[in-house]
Write a protein that binds this DNA or RNA. Structure first.
Length: 285
DNA sequence: CACCAGGCAAGCC
DNA sequence: GGCTTGCATGGT
């Protein structure tokens, strides 16, 4: 991978960074495709614009220093995905799926933003999650950035009603209060082992195992966290004949394997097929 | 075709 | 089982 610093942009030369796959595999909610094909979004308070090029990705909106300090890591550019893909290809199911899902990179998003975003994701769908988060940032963030725990900790559920988060509003406030007060230190959570980190996040109302796993994977660097929702359960059942991933070996890269499977399923509409089969089965029984 | 009722959606309490 | 909200769905 070569990084080329231009006057107004940064060029990441690699064939293993696919913007559409990375931004639309369900791990983040703040990037959207422009009319000209660019992806635009805000991360770490910076407005980013990215173009998919034939031999890589061109990034606008950040300085060299910001890239080196924050966004190199944000896009997980230090990780050798092709080496990991080789390892994961020992799994016969993933061997066939990796050529399809290759180019997804697991983002390292801001911890607070990640936890709140996945609190909002509970019993929800992606378009609506994006809508609620956009409203949250617009109403309470500075210049469209994700609002701070301090600002949200001062909000009442009445204040938050404008974002239409429904029953999740009180969970957002609980999270903000625990982080703002220092009761939960998200930077310390990053350094804990998986079990303690998960338990720590689950002290927040609205955070159960699934939301904790999503947060740990997409915002805390736990690459082996394996978020298991109803879709992944269906996918596991379909491909492996089991509903429990603990019997499977993803060689410490469970989170990457999970995203590969999930992306494959949603874009091939495999999940619709599986769901349809479930329905038919339910009718027969 | 417009409208409405009831179900349901990346879970958690 | 209840929770908010919004939306696709099927029935009228």
């Amino acid at each position: 991978m070569d990084i080329i610093y231009n006057k107004n942009s940064i060029y990441i030369k690699t064939d293993c960074f696919h913007l559409q796959k990375t931004f639309e595999c369900g791990q983040c909610f703040r990037f959207n495709k422009n009319a000209d094909g660019a992806y635009f979004g805000i991360a770490y308070g910076k407005a980013l614009t990215l173009y998919q090029r034939p031999d890589g990705v061109e990034l606008f909106g950040v300085t060299k220093a910001e890239f080196e300090n924050t966004f190199f890591d944000y896009f997980d550019l230090g990780r050798d995905y092709d080496r990991i893909n080789e390892i994961l290809s020992r799994d016969p199911v993933l061997k066939d799926i990796i050529p399809y899902s290759r180019g997804i990179r697991i983002l390292n998003q801001q911890p607070f933003e990640t936890v709140v975003s996945f609190i909002i994701s509970a019993s929800n769908n992606i378009p609506r999650i994006k809508k609620i988060i956009a409203a949250l940032c617009e109403s309470f963030g500075e210049n469209g950035a994700f609002p701070s725990p301090e600002v949200l900790a001062k909000c009442t559920t009445d204040d938050l009603s404008v974002i239409r988060a429904g029953f999740r509003d009180k969970y957002i406030i609980d999270c903000a209060k625990k982080v703002a007060s220092g009761e939960i230190d998200l930077e310390k959570v990053k350094k804990m082992d998986y079990k303690n980190a998960s338990a720590e996040l689950q002290k927040i109302n609205g955070v159960g195992k699934k939301v904790a796993d999503c947060s740990l994977l997409f915002g805390f660097g736990f690459i082996d966290a394996f978020p298991k929702d109803v879709w992944i359960k269906r996918i596991l059942q379909h491909f492996y004949g089991v509903a429990d991933e603990s019997t499977l070996d993803f060689y410490g890269y469970g989170g990457i394997a999970q995203q590969y499977l999930f992306y494959y399923a949603i874009t091939t509409h495999l999940n619709d097929t599986i769901k349809e089969k479930e329905k038919q089965y339910a009718v027969q029984v």
